[in-house]
């Protein structure tokens, strides 16, 4: 089995927004839609020990996605490899999935009418390539791979380092793991 997942190494992210721009280019997004903003927190800490945290956001491709069970049209769906995506011809644009996502990963453009979201670039991934945001990241802060493969970078990182996930208490089981900028070996 394949289970695609992503690791965000916040120790390496410098907040350059290259991934944001790359994503817009590859997926030809409308102007008002952003799949993967890089948000920042800080300056944190006390001088001289100060730091700033950059958090690349993206759809978490949850194992228990609240956005697919609420879709009445079966347009919002999850494939066997874990990728959550929207079939835009089947989506009637009721926006219930947009409201149900705790991560704000979904958006809808007024002129198009259907819901859009990150697909882990499944057109690229299924041809053996990396998602475009991962391929673009010159800091190697975004790492993508198969979590079920013990030799993959993501499974090594997730198993050896301290990682965090967002809003785990909601039971969504998100599959994007963050290595905190002050994190380290287990």
């Amino acid at each position: 089995m394949t289970r695609y997942a992503m690791v965000m190494d916040q120790r390496r992210c410098i907040g350059c927004q290259s991934c944001t721009v790359a994503c817009r280019t590859w997926n030809e997004l409308p102007m008002d839609i952003i799949y993967n903003p890089v948000v920042s927190e800080g300056v944190l800490g006390e001088f001289p020990e100060v730091h700033q945290t950059f958090t690349p956001l993206i759809c978490m491709h949850c194992d228990n996605p609240p956005c697919t069970i609420c879709c009445p049209c079966k347009a919002s769906q999850q494939d066997e490899d874990g990728i959550v995506w929207v079939d835009e011809t089947k989506c009637m644009g009721c926006k219930v999935c947009v409201n149900s996502c705790p991560y704000g990963a979904r958006d809808v453009n007024h002129d198009e009418g259907f819901v859009r979201k990150c697909t882990f670039c499944k057109d690229r991934v299924r041809e053996g390539e990396q998602p475009y945001c991962v391929a673009t990241c010159h800091q190697k802060a975004r790492i993508f791979g198969d979590l079920d493969d013990p030799e993959s970078d993501v499974s090594k990182l997730v198993n050896r380092l301290v990682t965090e996930r967002f809003f785990e208490e909601l039971g969504t089981d998100p599959q994007v793991y963050y290595i905190p900028d002050l994190g380290g070996v287990k």
Binding site: C70, P72, C73, K74, M92, G93, C94, V96, F114, V115
Partner: peptide, 22 residues
């Protein structure tokens, strides 16, 4: 709806609350 022309798909899912509402 964003795409009203496909609204009849609303009855397809078994789990969606909106389907039961309709």
């Amino acid at each position: 709806l964003g795409q009203p022309k496909v609204f009849l798909r609303v009855f397809l899912s078994a789990t969606a609350i909106i389907k039961w509402g309709a």
